[in-house]
Simulated assay, not measured.
Amino acid sequence: MARTDDDMMTIAEALRGDLRVMRVYTETKQEAYKRFSALFASQPELLELTGPEALPAVVTVIPMDQTEPDALADQFRTQFPAAQSVKSSTEYLSRLGVSQIPDQTCPSSGERPWPTI
C-alpha cells in the first residue's frame, strides 16, 4: 500500500521490471474508494465518514514460479520505503484465521486460486 497514487505508480513500474514478478495490478485511491463504496453501499453512515483520501493506493504482485512470497515481501519492504505496508499472502491468510497455511511457493502452472475458507 502506498500513501499516494504517484508513489504507487513508481513502485508498480519498478516491480514490472523485476524478474521475480509475473504480474502487477494497481488500484488508485479513487478506484479503491469506488470498490469500497460498492462493498458498503448498504451502510451510508460509513460512506459519509470515509473519502478516497482515507484509502491507500495499492500494488498487488503475482510472483513468478518458485518464488517464495514471504521472502519477496521482506525484500520489497526494504526496496520500497515509500510503501505504507507490504503484506504477503501468508500474512493475509493468518489474519483471516486460516490455521493450516498451504505451501505459498507460486506453482509452475501460474496463479494459485484463492483458498476457500
Rank of each mutant, 00 (worst) to 15 (best):
A71T: 08
P52C: 00
D18N: 15
F36T: 02
V58C: 05
L47Y: 06
K34V: 09
S89L: 13
L49F: 03
A82S: 13
F80T: 04
M64D: 01
T50R: 11
V61I: 14
D65R: 05
P56H: 06
T60H: 02
V21T: 15
Q66S: 12
L39D: 12
T26S: 05
F76T: 00
V24A: 08
E31L: 10
F80S: 05
K29F: 05
T28P: 05
S85R: 13
A38T: 05
F40T: 04
V58E: 11
L19E: 14
E27A: 14
S89K: 08
G17Q: 13
R23H: 04
E31H: 10
E27W: 02
S89E: 14
D70K: 13
D74G: 09
P81N: 07
V86A: 12
T60N: 06
A32L: 02
L49V: 00
T60F: 01
E31Q: 15
T60M: 10
G17I: 02
E68P: 01
T26E: 12
P63A: 03
A54E: 09
P69Q: 09
Q30N: 14
L19F: 03
F40A: 01
F40P: 00
K29E: 10
T28E: 08
Q30G: 03
E27P: 00
E45Q: 14
Y33R: 10
R77G: 06
A14Q: 09
A73T: 10
D65C: 00
Q43I: 03
R16V: 00
S42M: 04
F80N: 07
V86M: 13
A71Q: 13
P52R: 12
Q66C: 01
D18E: 07
K34M: 06
E68F: 07
S85V: 06
L49N: 13
L72W: 12
L47D: 03
Q43D: 11
I62R: 12
R77M: 03
A32C: 01
D18A: 09
Y25H: 09
T50V: 15
G51P: 05
Q75S: 15
